[in-house]
Amino acid sequence: MLKYTNDHEWLRMDGDVATIGITPFAQEKLGDLVFVELPGVGMKLSKGTVAATVESVKAASDVYAPVSGDVLAVNEKLTGEPGLVNADPTGDGWLFKMKLADVAELDTLLDERAYSALTTSH
């Protein structure tokens, strides 16, 4: 079960560890990615701060931390293959993993149905 943000990120929970990426809707809107800047492992991120930057041919877009916590891992494969985000945004194209500081923050996120309603109203 994925959780979503209004800013087109997804989270997959495994205990108190979240894997985070951008949604298929977002990657399609952005178009071909050519560079992904990832946070440093060990960085503390507060919810809503810039965690990563994804760059398409046309523009750079910030990816915000959907929750607060520590960065546990980043997807190093994206350095050489940023296009993985386009090809498989919720799988091999994940961006980073975080250990949650406050599990209650998950309640602020959208479920599949709410997110789908958000993207179809666009």
Binding site: D7, H8, A26, S61, D62
Partner: peptide
């Protein structure tokens, strides 16, 4: 993600 473009 930052705001995505829309058309008016």
């Amino acid at each position: 993600m930052a705001a995505l473009p829309t058309t008016g």
